[in-house]
């Protein structure tokens, strides 16, 4: 009986690996039988070798860290602006409704469309890359925080009020806590968007480093294994950031969904 359970648990743990193994096998097969020109699609082994070399001896590690740094700064700026503003707007539904259209409009505007504007204001440097990412992420965060505050359970607010909590205490003790699950949704979506914007900016806006620059540079030099390695590094970074936020969320908002 116990052995069956152990086998089931093992099977459960291995289930997500099937897709990875399948993809690698297909890729390897494709490059082995040369369905695609091997220059365009090197084997996974060549990619992994390039990744290892880039991370240990080459510039990829530096590029990786630069992208992490820009995304982190962009997220900090976005959160510092969007979280307090979201709480303020969310605490009064009338106030939020009055600016809802503006928020929705800019939230729907592709952040890449404002690159030229930000270039004019902040010049060709790190500032533009970071601030455009902050711009995109902050609107996503703002929207989620405001809705989190607005959707605070009425009974919970009433319970605090009936116990004698002032308006300010209701805001800090109940609304804020009630908005946390939705705030984390906003932060998670925000960091994904910020990474996308940073990587795009690194490709095209006068960059000397960063994962976007690494991908673009490798492509220009026709170093295909390096290009795939950089793409893989960007993917791993995106996945890792999402996972990090999920883990923090689970610890902080332990009551969510219960």
């Amino acid at each position: 009986m116990r052995r069956v359970f152990a086998r089931d648990a093992l099977a459960q743990a291995l289930l997500p690996c099937i897709g990875v193994v399948l993809l690698l096998a297909l890729w390897y097969l494709a490059s082995y039988v040369r369905v695609v020109d091997p220059v365009l699609l090197p084997s996974p082994v060549a990619m992994m070798t390039a990744l290892w070399r880039g991370m240990t001896a080459g510039s990829l590690a530096h590029d990786f860290l630069r992208t992490v740094e820009r995304t982190t700064v962009a997220m900090l700026v976005a959160a510092v602006i969007a979280v307090p503003l979201g709480i303020l707007l969310g605490s009064s539904e009338r106030l939020y409704r009055s600016v809802e259209f503006v928020i929705d409009f800019f939230r729907s505007t592709p952040a890449s469309a404002v690159f030229p504007l930000f270039l004019v204001i902040f010049g060709v440097g790190d500032k533009t890359k970071i601030y455009v990412a902050s711009f995109g992420a902050s609107l996503v965060i703002l929207f989620n925080v405001a809705y989190g505050v607005m959707n605070a359970r009425k009974t919970r607010l009433l319970a605090a009020k009936v116990m004698g909590a002032s308006r300010l205490r209701v805001l800090t003790d109940v609304m804020l806590m009630e908005s946390l699950p939705q705030t984390f949704v906003g932060l998670r979506n925000g960091v994904s968007l910020a990474l996308v914007i940073v990587v795009v900016a690194e490709m095209f806006i006068g960059s000397v480093d960063g994962l976007g620059h690494a991908v673009f540079d490798a492509q220009q030099m026709f170093e295909m294994p390096d290009m795939y390695a950089s793409i893989f590094a960007a993917g791993a970074l995106g996945y890792g950031l999402n996972l990090l936020f999920l883990l923090v969320e689970k610890r902080v908002v332990h009551w969510s969904g219960k």
Binding site: R153, K154, T155, R156, L158, A159, V162, D173, V174, M177, L180, H254, W255, K258
Partner: peptide, 13 residues
């Protein structure tokens, strides 16, 4: 005051 819906009335955090 005790509410009908204890799940919503208590603070889960």
């Amino acid at each position: 005051y005790v509410f009908q819906n204890y799940r919503d009335a208590l603070f889960p955090w």
